[in-house]
């Protein structure tokens, strides 16, 4: 790892100032993604700003919302009574990610900001528009089994690897951000972006902006929920496909529904057309099949990931069935 200067921020303002002044500086929280990438030489910040001493660890209920500080640990959020009771989907998604040790280090902010696990991004001998803009996309003609089936461009077909973010986009969370120009609140759906012509940018955060927390609005989804994660082994692996499904069912009729997928796009992928279709319908396997078909509109496979075109709808149906307790 190339050496760097270490700074510890004791106030939010100092953290933001340090990054705003220096484009080569980066925040560090749990370090589980940043240290990994620095060892590989994928990123080499000259200065690292330790934000772990900032008071951003709270998990609390406020009227209308649950607010979670960006430095709350993935394990603490997953096991917190407030989250298990009010947002069980988030607990399930967090527990499906990484390992117990990593979840004890990983923070909410770091999880949102984690980079893709595309092997061409990680291998500095390979072209990658995300790592070196203009160098090309190694995965496009390469081994692309893990890659996107929605929203990709010829500049980048990588996927966002987070499980937590799939639950958060389904739950209409907001990302709370503080930066040199003040505070802003970003809809989770708008936080991560599609690669388009600028694969280097994963999200809309500006240099110097710090994620201070997230807010999850109150919702009725506590009973009929499921997070299905399909991976190459039973645990401790990134998703090939994951599906967050939540239903609000009254008298066997779907009042409201949220659906989102992981492992399929450059961002956590919400399925609004399938949700619209399901609203007001009676629960049945047939309508879940129909919804899965609708969800797959616009999907596109590459040489090695065509299996995802079959796996994704099957996963949507399965996740909805488990959430609806059909069987």
């Amino acid at each position: 790892m190339i050496n760097f200067q270490y700074l510890r921020a004791d106030t939010q303002k100092k953290a933001i100032d340090a990054l705003a002044k220096d484009a080569s500086a980066q925040f560090i929280a749990g370090g589980t993604n940043l240290v990994d990438l620095m060892k590989k030489g994928v990123t080499s910040p000259q200065r690292i700003v330790d934000i772990t001493h900032l008071p951003l660890k709270q998990i609390e209920k406020v009227p209308g919302y649950t607010r979670i500080g960006s430095l709350a640990l993935n394990s603490e959020v997953a096991e917190h009574e407030l989250i298990k009771n009010n947002h069980p989907l988030l607990s399930l998604a967090l527990q499906a990610g990484a390992s117990p040790q990593l979840r004890n280090m990983a923070t909410v902010g770091g999880n949102i900001m984690q980079r893709t696990r595309c092997t061409y991004f990680y291998d500095t001998e390979m072209p990658c528009n995300k790592r070196i803009p203009g160098s090309g996309c190694g995965a496009l003609q390469g081994y692309n089994r893990m890659h996107a089936i929605f929203g990709a461009s010829d500049k980048c077909i990588a996927v966002h690897p987070s499980d937590m973010c799939v639950a958060l986009v389904a739950l209409d969370a907001k990302v709370l951000v503080s930066g040199p120009k003040g505070n802003r609140r970003i809809e989770f759906e708008d936080f991560h972006r599609l690669p388009g012509n600028d694969a280097a940018k994963d999200n809309v955060l500006q240099q110097g902006e710090l994620i201070t927390g997230i807010e999850i609005p109150d919702h009725p989804f506590t009973k009929n929920i499921h997070y299905l994660k399909i991976r190459d082994r039973a645990s401790y692996a990134f998703a090939l496909i994951s599906v967050a499904a939540t239903l609000d069912i009254q008298n066997n009729v779907i009042q409201d529904v949220r659906l989102a997928m992981g492992g399929v796009a450059h961002k956590p992928w919400r399925l609004p057309a399938a949700e619209e279709f399901l609203k007001g319908k009676k629960v049945s396997e047939e309508i879940f099949r129909e919804a899965a078909k609708i969800a797959m509109n616009g999907s596109k496979a590459y040489e090695h990931n065509a299996f995802k075109l079959k796996m994704a709808p099957a996963a949507i149906i399965e996740s909805l069935k488990i959430a609806a307790k059909l069987d």
Binding site: G30, G31, M105
Partner: peptide
């Protein structure tokens, strides 16, 4: 008291 991976932990922190 919490288990972590020492390989991804910076000692200065």
């Amino acid at each position: 008291g919490k288990r972590v991976n020492a390989c991804l932990t910076l000692a200065v922190m």
